[in-house]
């Protein structure tokens, strides 16, 4: 692991498997629908509502039950809400960008808004998977028919077949106007989803 020289560095606690029993009790519905901060208050995230849904599979094509999925994305104007962007005029006060859900079956459905294009990046959502048998794996999902996909630096480190695995499929629109995108994740084996290393890079 690379460290800046001169910086005091402690040895990290090891990541460990989440195991099969991440408590359902910790569910937070406000993190499963990012189109609003809370269902009971006035204030909607700006942008096009989307539903990202799909299934998480293991090496044998079985659903990966009990997975914990986390999402991280920019707002409709392409801005992430971090300490760096505090006070920026493009921050949407009703959008944080961090989502989380636990899927008992391995199938998931996450409601959000379409992230904007930013700097050199095509619209994307970072997806982190925690589950039994692994510690943590990370990828990004992209959207079809986005002109910015062609120049996206993440998509461009992938082969043609790998790129296709990270681009969700459009699957119509719900009655209440959300665009639906399908994104299946294959954790291991044939058709494996490309995953990224945020420790070595």
């Amino acid at each position: 692991m690379t460290q800046e020289t001169g910086q005091k560095t402690l040895l990290p606690t090891n990541e460990d498997t989440t195991g099969p029993y991440f408590p359902i009790y910790f569910r937070d519905e406000s993190l499963e629908d990012l189109t609003r901060v809370d269902a009971g208050v006035v204030g909607q995230a700006k942008g096009t509502p989307i539903i990202l849904r799909g299934r998480v599979f293991d090496r044998h094509g079985n659903l990966a039950n009990g997975v914990l999925l986390e999402f991280w994305q920019a707002n409709a104007k392409g801005l992430y809400r971090t300490p760096e962007t505090e006070g920026h005029t493009d921050i949407d006060p009703w959008f944080n960008g961090y989502g989380r859900l636990r899927s008992a079956s391995g199938a998931y459905s996450f409601r959000s808004i379409m992230p904007g294009t930013s700097d050199n990046r095509a619209p994307n959502i970072t997806v982190t998977i925690f589950s039994d048998g692994i510690n943590r794996i990370v990828t990004q999902v992209f959207f079809p028919d986005q002109s910015a996909n062609d120049a996206d630096p993440v998509l461009n480190v992938l082969t043609e077949s790998e790129r296709h695995r990270l681009i969700a499929k459009h699957d119509g629109r719900t009655a209440d106007g959300a665009e639906v995108y399908l994104f299946d994740i294959i954790m291991a084996g044939d058709g494996e989803t490309p995953f990224f290393d945020d420790l070595q890079s």
Partner: peptide, 20 residues
């Protein structure tokens, strides 16, 4: 059943911040 078999890919520097 669940551990990726492919080596993890390095994140290009220009995209690194988006993974935080």
């Amino acid at each position: 059943q669940r551990t990726p078999r492919q080596r993890l890919k390095l994140i290009p520097e220009t995209a690194r911040k988006s993974f935080v």
